[in-house]
Design a protein around this nucleic acid. Structure first.
Lengths: 168, 849
DNA sequence: ACGCTCGAGCTACACATC
DNA sequence: GATGTGTAGCTCGAGCGT
């Protein structure tokens, strides 16, 4: 969690926490699917997945689990039934009902079943991704003028040979 | 005749039981594991019995029972009818479609004496989808075939026509199957204008799977078929287009006759679909079926950037995988674009497919020889360096275990661009994977490497124009290898220093080599002050070489080489002053080296006093120089110096602001970068306290028409706001409006930066999210106004989508760290209120939300 | 091979338009 | 009033991971 107000003279103590790195790498992964920008943005299905576990976890594990369990055992056979019913798309060629040809070849005079020439000529660029600049937290964590140095841990770029010797 | 009579009675029986025998075959054929050939064989037998007056004999003139034929056809079509209304992807119906194709293939082959001899009854083609299972087991198909041939032995009583007496007429002879094909196709084609999309879909599907099973078609039927497909490929329903495209791709590509409707031939239509069809699956069908040739190749390559990840993947795993005989048929720029896209794709499965394509068939094409492969890839071309590097790294990652190389003196003495390039990345991969034992036999000693650099440098300096680039490249790669060595050896360090110094003094050393030198010297140096002293010395030497006596300098070939777009403008009539030019280039080179040094320095100026001299003698004068390039590079150095000392930094802020306000674009950009760096380093308030102008400077740059400047400002603000140094609703609103503004649409850097920034900003922190909520409504109002009076040629995101995105940003559930419940409702609630207020005050303009 | 998940596509419904 | 158009929600299946 972020500290709301850090002393202004040392602002990057905010950024230097491990959590901050975690947060940014979290966004690096979650946002890697939406990088292409508003033209390719889609409304994600409401994050029910995150809310689903909530009722079970937020509630006590004593009463709620009991009340919901009756539905559980009933579900299992239902699933198998459903599957069997769904697979039942076989066609009975021998005794099946006749299909009337006018049902098949019936035409619709008014409805246009073909696209207009204009609908056919769309800009090919809309079906292509833009040039990916691979924007990530890396860009946000480096200096413009010293791109090799991260803002997070201003470690020494030059390792002192003297200290190497000292280490031994 | 007895035979004839028995045939007739068999026919009577068969005709009588048609309404059960054929449905039974269809029933069998729809099953999941049905061997369709079996049913096809049985159906063919029925067909022969019904349609002929004699037992079938290959090559015999057709003796047709038209009534029997009609009965057969009618019954067949009656069964076909039953699948035409079955929805897309219903397995049973799909099986029947395949059955139809199998039957057509089989019955047609039976009547064709040419194909009958070698009776390699090809399986009917797949439907071009990724989901198709291999419909038939090839071995069983062949077995069935053999059985048939035994059964078809003509009875001894029949006259056996000679097999070779029947050269085909120019007009194909009519056969039982050709008549059937005509009947079926004519019937199926009727469905192409049906009201039901399912019928259209099924008809096209039948055509798609059957076209290659039809044998030779009448010209008129073929034309009719083609026209129908031309129309269906423009169907309103994507699912129909998928099948139609599939069918079209199975027609002879050699047919180049254009459609009178739009003047496009088959190939052109397919390419058009590939590029413009809104359905990813339609495009996919074309990717999978389009023949690879010089015309289609660029369009297939373009699909490596398709919005659909699966399509992108198929370009690598299918279209260009096995079908491309020689990757050198791809023009080099396209080749590198393709590899770059594939290896850098956001989707791991695409990257994987691209890697497999390169490591598999492409390397094979080069005889599994990496050096040969690199040669064919033309890796020396510096334009594509990044991609070459990535590619070789990927390659070696895959092969690191099976590859054991040994680089000894002889290897290093006889380097080629390809071999040194390979060595560099082999070393890199070994280091990254900590494969120390393999490294041991590969890494040269520091002294040796210094010697090799010297050696190839000499060759470079003496080289003819032709081989110059060759040696230059080798030296560059040796620099890179040098960064991996151990610098403990004193003698090696000294040798390296001497070598690097010599190189630094070469008048026309490329800029990136100067950077390598700066890097390597940092490894040679004992510590930072030592490093600084080394560079300052070298800078002094460079200056001495250029400035004191300018007699033998010729500005043209001794100049420092920068990127191509950097061209020093020489004022009109200044040409004779080559000496002045060369002095200027010398200064520029010193500044550049200084820049590289400062980028690698950390110590404060007080602890590293040798920098002061260089700042005062060289950098400050350069900032005031009239030559733009020198000013830029000087400013850059000054900016870097500000990194090292807070008071120097703060002191110079007004100067940087001034540069942003009145410099040329490149200078503006450098100054702007420095300002953001200083804010990052010393805090926004430390800067803004003394120079409140910064904020307005940022506003000014956000609006600037220079894209690079806009991008720098955006990225800088994103940094400063994400780190929560700057909390400024108004600035956030400016960024939001900028993000969706029509003029920013083309600026990819700004777009992609903000695409990252907004969700990260809003979802990382509840306070940020509230800030967004406060400005969202007024921002969207402004954007809707903009949207309403868009010019003809301007494009903008639909306001509805804008509001969706803003709703997403301000959704409290998306917060990474969920706030305490109090704030949860409070975010979008006020927004909704505000929306209502806006709607009430002006109920003529309403947004899409 | 199995099972899960996410997303494309389908249906139904409301609204607009002729 | 009927028919076309656009959208919301739901379902089912392809494709991925285990």
């Amino acid at each position: 969690q972020l500290e709301p107000d850090e002393p202004q003279d040392n602002p990057f103590s905010i950024m230097s926490s491990q959590q901050e790195t975690d947060l940014l790498s979290y966004f690096d992964t979650t946002l890697s699917k939406t990088w292409a920008g508003p033209e390719h943005w889609k409304l994600r299905r409401a994050r029910r997945d995150i809310e689903k576990p909530e009722p079970s976890s937020t509630q006590d594990n004593t009463s709620v689990a009991e009340t919901e369990s009756p539905g559980g055992p009933g579900d299992a056979p239902e699933h198998t039934n459903k599957k069997k019913l769904q697979v039942d798309t076989a066609i009975d060629f021998l005794n099946g009902e006749e299909v009337r040809e006018e049902d098949i070849f019936g035409k619709n005079k008014r409805t246009n079943i073909t696209l207009t020439q204009q609908q056919m000529t769309r800009d090919p660029a809309t079906l292509l991704l833009p040039d990916d600049q691979h924007f990530s937290s890396k860009q946000l964590l480096r200096y413009f003028l010293k791109p090799k140095i991260t803002l997070l841990r201003p470690k020494k770029f030059l390792r002192s040979r003297q200290s190497d010797l000292d280490d031994l | 005749m007895v035979n004839r009579q028995s045939f007739q009675s068999k026919k009577q029986q068969t005709l009588a039981s048609l309404s059960t025998s054929i449905p039974n075959l269809f029933n069998d054929a729809q099953q999941k594991n049905a061997v369709l050939t079996k049913q096809a064989v049985a159906l063919r037998k029925i067909q022969e019995t019904c349609c002929l007056n004699h037992p079938f004999v290959i090559g015999q003139p057709l003796d047709l029972d038209e009534q029997g034929e009609a009965a057969f056809n009618q019954e067949f079509l009656r069964n076909v009818n039953k699948i035409l209304l079955r929805r897309r992807r219903e397995a049973h119906a799909d099986n029947i479609v395949r059955f139809i194709a199998t039957f057509l293939n089989y019955t047609q082959k039976q009547d064709d004496p040419a194909s009958d001899r070698n009776k390699k009854n090809q399986a009917p083609p797949d439907d071009g989808h990724t989901d198709d299972q291999p419909s038939q087991d090839p071995s069983s198909t062949n077995e069935d075939q053999d059985d048939i041939n035994h059964e078809r032995q003509p009875s001894p009583a029949e006259p056996i026509p000679s097999q070779d007496d029947d050269p085909m007429d120019e007009d194909m002879p009519e056969t039982m199957s050709s008549r059937f094909v005509r009947v079926l196709m004519t019937y199926i084609l009727k469905g192409h204008t049906a009201k039901s999309q399912t019928v259209r879909l099924r008809c096209c599907q039948i055509i798609a799977l059957s076209v290659s099973c039809l044998g030779e078609l009448d010209e008129d039927l073929y034309q009719q078929l083609k026209m129908v497909l031309f129309e269906r490929v423009r169907d309103k329903e994507p699912s129909v287009r998928i099948q139609a495209a599939n069918a079209l791709s199975k027609l002879e590509i050699s047919d180049e006759e254009p459609d009178p409707f739009d003047q496009m031939n088959i190939s052109q239509k397919l390419i058009h679909l590939l590029r413009t069809d809104s359905s990813a699956e339609v495009r996919r069908v074309v990717i999978l079926n389009l023949e690879l040739n010089p015309t289609t190749l660029p369009h297939l390559i373009e699909r490596a950037r398709d919005t659909d990840a699966l399509n992108r993947r198929l370009v690598f795993s299918h279209a260009l995988h096995e079908h491309l005989d020689d990757f050198r048929t791809i023009p080099v720029p396209d080749l590198y674009r393709l590899i770059k896209w594939g290896l850098n794709d956001r989707d791991p499965s695409v990257r994987e497919a691209a890697t497999r394509m390169i490591t598999g068939p492409w390397i094979n094409q080069a005889g599994n020889n990496l050096l040969e492969f690199l040669e064919r890839m033309d890796v020396m071309d510096m334009v594509n360096m990044e991609t070459s590097e990535k590619m070789l790294t990927t390659l070696l990652e895959k092969r690191k275990d099976s590859l054991s190389l040994k680089f000894e003196d002889e290897f290093w003495q006889n380097l080629t661009p390809e071999s040194v390039f390979l060595a560099r990345f082999y070393i890199k991969v070994l280091i990254e994977n900590e494969m120390d034992d393999k490294l041991e036999v590969v890494l040269p000693e520091l002294t040796r490497l210094a010697f090799y650099i010297q050696h190839y440098n000499q060759l470079w300096q003496q080289a003819s124009h032709d081989s110059e680039a060759h040696y230059e490249f080798i030296v560059g790669q040796l620099f890179e290898i040098g960064k991996n060595l151990d610098y403990a050896d004193e003698v090696g360090r000294r040798k390296m220093y001497e070598t690097l110094k010599t190189l630094a003094l070469i008048p026309d050393i490329p800029e990136e080599y100067l950077e390598h030198i700066a890097d390597l010297l940092s490894l040679v140096a004992m510590d930072e002050p030592d490093y600084t002293r080394m560079i300052v010395d070298i800078i002094g030497d460079i200056q001495d070489a250029v400035e004191p006596d300018d007699t033998d300098f010729d500005g043209r070939n001794k100049r420092l080489r920068f990127d191509d777009d950097v061209v020093i403008k020489v004022e009109e009539g200044d040409e004779p002053d080559a000496a002045a030019l060369s002095i200027m280039y010398g200064r520029l080179k010193c500044l550049t080296l200084c820049k590289f040094m400062l980028q690698r320095c950390e110590l404060s100026l007080n602890n590293n006093t040798s920098i002061y001299g260089i700042l005062n003698d060289m950098v400050i004068p350069a900032v005031q120089n009239s030559e733009a390039l020198l000013r830029e590079e000087g400013l850059h150095c000054l900016g870097l110096a500000c990194h090292l000392d807070k008071s120097v930094g703060i002191h110079n802020v007004p100067m940087f602001i001034k540069c942003v306000q009145s410099g040329h674009d490149e200078l503006k950009n450098k100054a702007l970068m420095t300002l953001f760096d200083l804010i990052s380093k010393y805090g926004y308030h430390a800067i803004a306290e003394k120079s409140p102008d910064v904020r307005s400077v940022f506003e000014y740059c956000l609006d600037h028409d220079n894209e690079k400047l806009q991008a720098t400002t955006t990225e800088g603000l994103a940094k400063v706001m994400l780190s929560r140094q700057l909390k400024d609703d108004e600035m956030l609103k400016l960024l939001t409006v900028l993000y969706f503004f029509p003029t920013t649409m083309e600026n990819g850097s700004v777009q992609q930066c903000l695409t990252y920034f907004f969700p990260a900003y809003c979802h990382s922190n509840a306070e940020n999210q509230q800030s967004m909520a406060r400005i969202a409504v007024s921002a969207i109002q402004e954007l809707v106004d903009t949207y309403l009076d868009l010019q003809e040629d301007e494009k903008m995101i639909d306001p509805k989508r804008i509001s969706e995105m803003m709703a997403d940003w301000t959704d409290p559930r998306q917060l990474v760290v969920p706030e305490q419940q109090e704030t949860n409702k409070g975010v979008q609630g006020p927004m909704a209120l505000e929306v209502v207020q806006v709607l009430v005050t002006c109920n003529k303009n309403d947004d899409g939300k």
